[in-house]
Amino acid sequence: MNERNDQKPELQQDSSERNSRQDKPEAESREPTKSSRKEELRDEHGHRYLSPEAINAWRIGGALGSLIYWLIPLGYGALAMGGDMWPEWPAYVLGVIFLTFTMMEATVIPWIRWKRWRYHVDHNEIDLRRGLFVVTRTLIPIKRVQHVDTRQGPVYRQFGLASVTVTTAGDTHEIPALSEPVADELRSTISEYARIAREDL
């Protein structure tokens, strides 16, 4: 019950924020979209970067997410303290490793990840480049696209971000951390291209 009570006002606040955004005069509400387009970053091939807000969103999301791994050294530590069976040092080693990991997640990793992420969409295909350790490039022909969604988790919502998910008959691909208007636009662009491509068939 508590959880619900905590969440409800937040939700309401959020929707009221959205409403107030919509309530603003048109010129003003268009302004941010336009400026975000101007600021939109592209690389030398004209491929687009994700929203720069992604870095901070990932720092928070990644650091929070990596806390789950802390259960391993903590659990082991608790077991090792309890009995004499196991040595205690692995708990410290794992602790240091995970601490470093969390620190990295909160600092450099999101930055590098953002720098590596590019996407490009035209009427033929979706082209994704990404990867920190494993650098990957994926092509998805528009003809193969079955549906497109936008998604927004709690952290993304705080930063006004959303991700676009593209589903084919065989797999699903995500373009993460786009600013909300960009994500909405991209979703409708892809589904429009997909519709045209299907009509051509």
């Binding site: 494993v134 490039r137 092509l139 065989g170």
Partner: peptide, 26 residues
Amino acid sequence: VQSLSVMANWFQRRKKLCSVQAVVAS
């Protein structure tokens, strides 16, 4: 083919290698 990926991890990049991955519906 539903999507095609070409990927290379750090070790592969150092040796100028890469992996190819294709997904089909099943």
